[in-house]
Design a protein around this nucleic acid. Sequence first.
DNA 1: AAAACGTGGAC
DNA 2: TGTCCAAGTTT
Length: 360
Amino acid sequence: MTASSGVHETAAVRSEDPARRLLTWYDRVKRALPWRGDRDPYKVWLSEIMLQQTRVETVIPYYGRFLEAFPTVEALATATEDEVRAQWSGLGYYRRARSLLQAARQVSATGTFPATLEGWLELPGVGRYTAAAIVSIVHGLKVAAIDGNLERVLSRIEAFDKDPKTAAGRLFMEQAAEIWMDLERPGDSNQALMELGATICRPKRPLCRDCPLVDDCAAFQRGEPEEFPLRRSRRRVVERELLAIAIRQEDRFLLFRRCAESEILGGTWEMPWVDATESSPARALGRRYGGDWKLGEPRGAVRHSITHRLLKVTVTEGELLGGGQLAEGPEARWADLAELDRLPHSSLVRKAMLVALPAR
DNA sequence: AAAACGTGGAC
DNA sequence: TGTCCAAGTTT
């Protein structure tokens, strides 16, 4: 690969080699993040799970609150799923919370955290990236943690002309990352590359003037850093329309707990909804939540649509007949507005609920 | 291998 | 307003 061109430099100029320059830059400008500078496996693990597909700024408050609620892996292991879910609420990708709890129980039963890449990979929710990040930071093992930042940074430096997500791309990334690994500080090498990707080598409008590696960057020399990394064509977004029924009692809303964990937002409390293509929404509601439903006629002032990614939600008023489901219990309960603020899926059901409020 | 999985910020 | 996409993992 092209980045190996620097290998033949003499020892005299070694202090200026790109990997050294990267670490020097990192030491100078790295952000002071709550999980930085702590090699406690529990904290590093937690931070890495929370950071999966989630921005640093989003994670910070959750990280602190979670540690207050569950200061140790033992504390987490003895928590209930609902307690963990409550701390995770709003962070997204709720499978992570379930996996985290399962993993905590595994670790607690074992008595100790893993200390190898393979050991970490056995924990649920810990994939190749996360395991690599943890062992490099916590145990100082020389393993590249290839995340989206690394893929972008390395694709640009090498002007790599393939999708990093392909098998060939992944192999290339592993080899390219190797060059940037400092034997003394593998964790910092990984974090430096990630920090560079997050703050300088951004997806859009990278700050190449401030980049410590600009002289090593093939994409910059071509004048088209934003063209990398190459990505396979996007799949078409298929929209699915849902009908959400706002069942109110003054300022409280009826929520249901859906049982299937495999569905979207599985296990969380939700507003009753059905697929909008159902020929008989009332009957579909009965199948989904039980009981006999009768839907009120949608009124213009109340009916409202929002679109969220693959979903379109239409809110309408409805009535629930047959009082059995109105009682609070494991399947149904009332929630007030304050609680709605703490519900996940804020862009979807919560907003749908709020627009269903009577006009002031 | 491709899809599913949440949310919020940027443009 | 719509699109992109972020410290990925799982099936």
